[in-house]
Simulated assay, not measured.
Amino acid sequence: MVKHTKKLLVQSFKILFSAGIIYWLVQSGKINFAALKNLLTPTAAAVALGLVLINLFFASERWRILIRSQDVAASPFSVFKLSLIGSFFNFAMPGGVGGDVIKAYYFTRDNPGSKVIAVTSVLMDRVLGLFAMVLLALLVMTYDFNHIVQTPALLTLFYFISGLFAAFVISLSLVFSQKIYDKGVLKKIIAKLPLSEKFLKLYESMHLYGRDGKRFILVIFLSLISQACAIVFLYLAGSMAGFTDVSAKTYFLVAPLGFMATAIPVSPAGVGVGQAAFYFLFNLYTGTTSELGPTTITAYQVATFITSLLGAFFYLRRKDRVETADLIDQP
């Protein structure tokens, strides 16, 4: 009871936090809802929803490849349905338990005995997706380095992203290294930690994902394609909203950084945090003040929510669905 109450309070705080940011952005005129009307034409709406659907599909395929690497059968459609259910719950059940936990839970229900695989594959999927965002941001910033060095804040951000990329490379190398695994170096360190048995199982499972270099590259490639779909959406939304003077290159730099901010679980599906992050990043990179960032990410979140309603449909069709309160209390 105490645990459930605590999680409920955390969820309520995150909803209020998100609502507070949105209220501030609207009151200060930093979100141009009028510009979003340009996306309501049948053609524009179809393209927008199509891009979001493709984005979610490639992200789903990334997760499926990780699952298959553990010798568990998983069809593209079955995994895609779970991904859509997870996407829906990102909006419908915000807080400490989100879409990742939901889709892992139902994957375990569909594949008995695969709890460890479900948890580690979802965790690795999130880690590699974030790594791909960092990689893309670093590549674009390096490409546009002459502009970066002219703005101290951007240069600081470049150093931070470079450090984050290095940290990812080192961490993944340690986890995936066969030599380190065989020598038991990390195992000895983990054995000294609290809950060592669980961490050891997690390490051993995550180590398996790095055995096939081609599969790892494919996962990163699918992540980049998924991100590209989201970035194209933002670019088209920005152009239709009247921000035609902003180059596509700017979107490819800002979007990965902005999506990294929305991945931090402090609001429902990144709503509110995304608006603030994109507002700051677009203004910082372009050197001007406009509603471009909040307007485009709001359009993307609305389109993602509409697409995620497919997840609600698939969830309601499940005969083994449980109440969200029961899902929250899952260990």
Rank of each mutant, 00 (worst) to 15 (best):
F57I: 09
F58I: 03
A59W: 10
A59F: 14
S60Q: 02
S60P: 13
S60G: 09
S60R: 12
R62K: 14
R62W: 07
W63D: 07
I67V: 13
I67W: 02
R68E: 11
R68H: 07
S69I: 08
S69D: 04
S69N: 10
Q70N: 14
D71Q: 10
V72P: 07
V72Q: 09
V72N: 00
A73R: 13
A73V: 10
A74M: 12
A74Q: 01
F77Q: 11
F77T: 04
S78T: 04
V79T: 13
F80H: 12
F80V: 02
F80I: 05
F80P: 00
S83M: 14
L84E: 08
I85H: 11
G86F: 14
G86Y: 14
G86V: 13
F89C: 06
N90F: 05
N90P: 10
F91G: 14
F91N: 11
F91V: 06
M93E: 05
M93S: 10
M93N: 12
P94Q: 01
P94E: 08
V97S: 04
V97K: 14
G98R: 12
G98A: 08
G98P: 03
D100C: 01
D100W: 15
V101D: 07
K103S: 11
A104T: 02
A104V: 00
A104Q: 01
Y105D: 01
Y105P: 11
Y106E: 13
F107K: 09
R109G: 00
D110W: 03
D110F: 07
D110A: 15
N111C: 12
P112F: 00
P112T: 04
G113I: 13
G113M: 10
G113Y: 12
K115M: 02
V116K: 04
A118V: 04
A118W: 05
V119H: 03
T120V: 11
T120W: 12
